[in-house]
Design a protein around this nucleic acid. Structure first.
Lengths: 147, 147
DNA sequence: AATCCAAATGGAAATCGTTTTCATACTACT
DNA sequence: AGTAGTATGAAAACGATTTCCATTTGGATT
């Protein structure tokens, strides 16, 4: 008669998301762009003072990445960014250095090459990083006309 | 009759490498693998107590990267690595997560796609990051036989 | 409902690569 | 030699992330 256990059931091994994870996930659903842990924390705290602490945000992000619901993106400034992904998948970006917009690439360039890398080098790929930096169409045009 | 100015000549605009840059460059020539700033510093100091300080190593690396003689590589652990490159060129790696070896890829996968990315998204590429992580042939085999 | 255990949480302190600051040493040109 | 602009070094500052540790919470057991 009791509501089922929100963190999961130990007997069945059912494992649900912790409160922290759910809050972080909810925050990421609001964002349409790459977001840092500190941004997520700030955003959550702003809308609710009892929101998870920064430590919990970091821990939750780790869990969500491990679960394949979120991917972390390294844009080279020493601050990791996060975003939702289709569970278990990943994608890469074109990142505009002017307006910070990130465009998803719908195809992974490396996937095509896994086979040839494997056979050419005997290298077993576990994961890879690919990000492209430059100017998006808008900003590139602005740059042109401003000059 | 005097030797020409070792830092360069202001009139001609000739610009040579500073002592720090030369030392760092020499260190990089010794390495056959990706190296961190702190490693370079430690190595230089070990062989000569009057070697450049850490700050100078960082500054020299920045200069060398700007000059296109060195590239910095982000392997995702928060510590940048550096290596010599064919001046003005770049390359990517297969990085073994077990023995830390890095295998140079002789071809840049992104170069082929610049055109199509440009025309499909209007995105102007300035640079990109691509690193592949996994196990090199040796380590992959070891992993197999150990199990 | 009372209790116990494991997991989750929060805040403060610690880490650690890198950058800044600022005073000093060097170099090139006059 | 004199001066201005660089280069350099050590120490302090920075900032994202992790670690510590004490507390709370949730789930199972009685």
């Amino acid at each position: 008669m009791t509501l089922e256990a929100p963190y999961g059931n130990r007997k069945t091994g059912e494992q649900r998301l912790t409160k922290g994870c759910r809050r972080v996930l909810a925050a990421l659903e609001q964002m349409d762009n790459l977001t840092s842990a500190q941004d997520i924390h700030g955003m959550l705290r702003q809308s609710a003072p009892e929101a998870p602490g920064l430590t919990t945000v970091y821990r939750s992000l780790d869990s969500l990445v491990a679960l394949g619901l979120v991917q972390s993106v390294d844009i080279g400034d020493g601050e990791k960014r996060y975003e939702l992904v289709v569970p278990g998948e990943h994608h890469h970006h074109l990142i505009c250095q002017h307006c910070r917009a990130s465009i998803h690439l719908d195809e992974c360039l490396v996937a095509n090459l896994e086979q040839s890398i494997m056979s050419q080098y005997g290298f077993v790929i576990r994961h890879h990083v690919l990000e492209v930096f430059g100017l998006c169409a808008n900003c590139a045009e602005m740059e042109m006309t401003t000059k």
